[in-house]
Design a protein around this nucleic acid. Structure first.
Lengths: 212, 212
DNA sequence: GGGCAACTGTACCATAGGTGCAGTGTGGGG
DNA sequence: CCCCACACTGCACCTATGGTACAGTTGCCC
């Protein structure tokens, strides 16, 4: 649940002000929170007026909705990239998952000094600022991670019986927890290595649990 | 980094309005975020005027500072309770730590439907709402957890060589991550079992890593 | 009965989100 | 060449919230 870097491709045509608003908003929201990111700040950064902002977005919640959708789509795409690549590198589900986790940790290590943060998690601690729809989208994000990783884990468990009796759903959630917990640690302590380190601990746990 | 229930002892004298403001503020901040918790709401709940509020607190950041201090103190006290009790129940550092983690998970299971949340983590995603002092206190909270659990882990590692080469500091942080990640999951999905489940996964990891 | 803690009341200010609406410039299709 | 729609601008105005300033009041303790 972290913003990975954009593929540098695409984007020939000049970016619209709408796109630039979303881009800037995402950056600022992850840096300092949704409440502290003012509309005035956004329009000043992009160079339009308040009326211009409200032409594109019904209100601030509408912006949040678009931000969340963008984030979830991009996020899913990037996880596909990583774990499909991992599947190419090894046939075995356990080996491939471990490779994917390593790739994931490495990517977080590279990219994390830019703007660490997870939009879906950001919602959770600023509940009432967002309407029910945005909160539902945040929940969907977590459920998407659960579904994806539970799938991987079930394939692994079929071939490698786990050494302890574990619930695969909460084990899938444990990666979300490690990532979001890692982000919080990294932001609170200004230690950019905290996130990749937590992902690697999750990887260790998976290894110890399933490796014969 | 979760609010545990108050020991029912103490408090003969009538609670001051100041105390009631802090109590209510903590509840509301964990429920809906700091930005969404208005001063008007707090004074209405306690039954005083705005002037009364500003008599007690210089500004909203001052309230945040007091809230954080209260939280950190209470939190440290409760962890002491749990892990001292665990040490009483078993001499061996590994066995005792595993008992402590179980007690912790059980407590989170019991109490978590009341008001899940960690004030220290709440700060991280609402950065600019707080001044540098509050942010520093949040960081201190994470460092206190790191120090405490790193201590336990070092004693364990002395007696039981870990099965993998792990960094004990980030392994200590992994409990913070599991707890804060668990809280986020639990809040986002409205699944109160998510937090205790994540603590138990951390416990599993410790078991697999150190148990002979 | 003097003093201090713990307020109340009133007035006032700035910032931010938000609404409503009329007007404008510019590029592409008919 | 004209017209329309898109992407805005400008202006007026409203509300909520945090915050300041300060004078006055109440109740309890010494």
């Amino acid at each position: 649940m972290v913003q990975l870097p954009m593929t540098v491709a695409a984007k020939q045509k000049p970016v619209s002000n709408r796109e630039r608003l979303l881009e800037l908003a995402e950056q600022l929201v992850l840096q300092k929170g949704f409440a502290s990111t003012s509309i005035e700040e956004l329009i000043a950064g992009v160079g339009i007026t308040k009326s211009g902002f409200f032409y594109h977005f019904k209100d601030k919640n509408d912006l949040a909705r678009e931000l969340m959708q963008r984030y979830l789509d991009e996020n899913a795409r990037q996880l596909d990239d990583i774990f499909n690549r991992a599947a190419e590198l090894h046939d075995d589900p356990l080996a491939s998952f471990l490779i994917g986790l390593k790739l994931f940790a490495e990517l977080m290590d590279k990219v994390h000094d830019v703007h660490p943060g997870c939009i879906a998690a950001a919602v959770v601690y600023q509940d009432q600022l967002f309407d029910a729809e945005v909160r539902a989208m945040s929940a969907e994000g977590f459920l998407a991670w659960r579904k994806r990783f539970r799938g991987y884990l079930e394939e692994i468990a079929k071939r490698y019986p786990p050494k302890m009796d574990v619930d695969l759903q909460s084990l899938a959630d444990a990666l979300s927890a490690a990532v979001d917990g890692g982000i919080i640690l990294s932001k609170a302590l200004h230690e950019r290595t905290a996130l990749p380190a937590q992902i690697m601990h999750y990887r260790n746990y998976i290894k110890l649990l399933f490796e014969p």
